[in-house]
């Protein structure tokens, strides 16, 4: 089920924003070259917030141990030991609102 998260206008290019929808763990929304990405606000490495990281060269960089995840594929680079890839939620921009399928959280 697609859940409404926020106004898409609130998500600026090159930034990561933390959003909470009632009943679900916090998610992070990023915009890069216009495209929207929604993913858990929890680093697959050690659960730290990814919204406190940043975007660099098309990757989400975790600000804690600097794992880098490719936007889109989620493939991890500069990988801390044991860190899996990042998975994304399906999302779309519907009439200026960001919607995402949070039910299938990885």
């Amino acid at each position: 089920m697609m859940i409404e998260l926020c106004d898409s206008g609130a998500i600026r290019d090159g930034e990561i924003t933390r959003v909470t929808a009632p009943g679900f763990p916090a998610v992070a929304i990023a915009r890069h070259n216009g495209a929207l990405y929604v993913f858990p606000d929890r680093c697959p490495h050690a659960d730290e917030s990814l919204a406190e990281g940043w975007i660099e060269d098309g990757r989400v960089v975790c600000g804690v141990h600097f794992a880098e995840f490719e936007l889109g594929s989620g493939e991890v680079h500069n990988r801390p030991v044991g860190c899996p890839n990042l998975s994304f939620f399906r999302c779309e921009d519907r009439d200026g609102k960001v919607f995402a399928t949070l039910a299938v959280e990885a």
């Binding site: 929890r42 680093c43 050690a46 659960d47 730290e48 917030s49 406190e52 600000g63 804690v64 141990h65």
Partner: peptide, 8 residues
């Protein structure tokens, strides 16, 4: 500033 440790 401390950025994080191990969230788990």
């Amino acid at each position: 500033a401390l950025r994080g440790t191990d969230g788990k």
